[in-house]
Design a protein around this nucleic acid. Structure first.
Lengths: 201, 201
DNA sequence: TTGAATAAAACGAATGACCGTTCTATTAAA
DNA sequence: TTTAATAGAACGGTCATTCGTTTTATTCAA
């Protein structure tokens, strides 16, 4: 039964979000899942495997959001739409646990090659979609060619990541204000590029 | 002797950067420091205290960078200067360990009230300086009043945080491109505000 | 439909390894 | 001689994982 895996991952997610990977014991996960140690180890070889499975599921879900937006006709609108979708999605109180686990995954991936690979792999789809949109904006002359696509995409992703972190630490943080400020920067760019004032490095 | 504390913190930093807080054992720290268990526990009550002391030292250093920039006459130049100073600082190969430990602190702070407090406290000085500069830009009409200062500062900090994370995962990441893209967004804003086109939320 | 026979899944107490911390002995400093 | 700092072996506790047992599900002959 594959529902068991989901059941175990959900329980693990709760535990990990509550106290972190390392303070959460397998006993916690076992209790939370309502199963037994043996049952869990029939489905996952180790605690590490559970963590990796969580990361994997997470990235799969994120990739989906990206594809929804990829083929909008106007690249500018697509980026704005994607950004808003993301910011509002991660701001949902129902995403509290996912955010917290996400930040822990960042840290854990620094010390776990397998997890780092999964984690980087999870970024390629968002990256690909954003790069495609940025390139389209470049062709339209909205972004100067001197700005590297890679860098611009990274800036956008950095904004997302930083927001997730801040929202973790201050769950009451106001999304709409943040989005307004980010959009203001983004919209401002359109006017600027017309004047072709690429900044010095 | 206070040099001992620094010696211990340095050793701990190396260990934590190498394998993470939880995989690094006190034995590792003891070996790395060249001291003994007893010696270390004379200076720090626990492993947790060492971690907190590291966070504290880190934030103290960051606050200094901020103050250097605070009283530049032109707020726009001050922000640009501060951003560049930060990006280049954290990109220094000598900061590899600090970056990695920094990301781990983000995760650990989610499960440790004391650490969260230290960590949030460490942000108030950068926040204060940035807010002051943003307010000055608002008075000059470069940023519309409709954009909340708090949100704009958060966006900037998010950029820093996201960059740190990405640089951790890909140490070869090119800073200059990232800075160029970020600056492009920032400079673009100046033109936009003149046309008073605050975006819808 | 039944019910034994086989397989699969779940149970949970036991295990063994590891790790933070302590504590007494020892050395150095004052 | 007294005080402070260091050494490092040993302790107590915790935790991931194992494994022999028990329960549940499936198959299939009667």
């Amino acid at each position: 039964m594959d529902g068991r895996r989901r059941q175990i991952l959900d329980a693990a997610n709760h535990c990990f979000a509550r106290v972190g990977f390392h303070h959460a014991t397998m006993q916690d996960v076992i209790r939370e899942s309502g199963l037994s140690a043996g049952a869990i180890y029939n489905h996952f070889a180790s605690k590490e495997d559970i963590i990796i499975a969580i990361a994997d599921a997470r990235h799969r879900a994120e990739a989906e959001v990206c594809r929804d937006v990829e083929d909008l006709p106007d690249p500018h609108a697509a980026i704005v739409h994607m950004g808003q979708a993301f910011f509002w999605h991660v701001s949902d109180p129902g995403q509290d646990e996912e955010r917290r686990v996400g930040v822990q995954l960042w840290a854990e991936a620094l010390n776990n090659k397998r997890l780092l690979d999964v984690s980087q792999e999870g970024l390629v789809e968002p990256y690909r979609v954003l790069a495609k949109l940025v390139d389209a904006l470049k062709k339209d002359g909205e972004i100067p060619a001197a700005i590297e696509t890679d860098a611009m995409v990274r800036v956008m992703i950095a904004l997302f990541q930083g927001f997730v972190l801040q929202k973790c630490r201050e769950p009451e943080l106001d999304v709409s204000g943040f989005v307004r400020a980010a959009l203001f920067l983004w919209e401002g760019m359109r006017g600027a590029s017309r004047a072709s004032t690429a900044p010095r490095s």
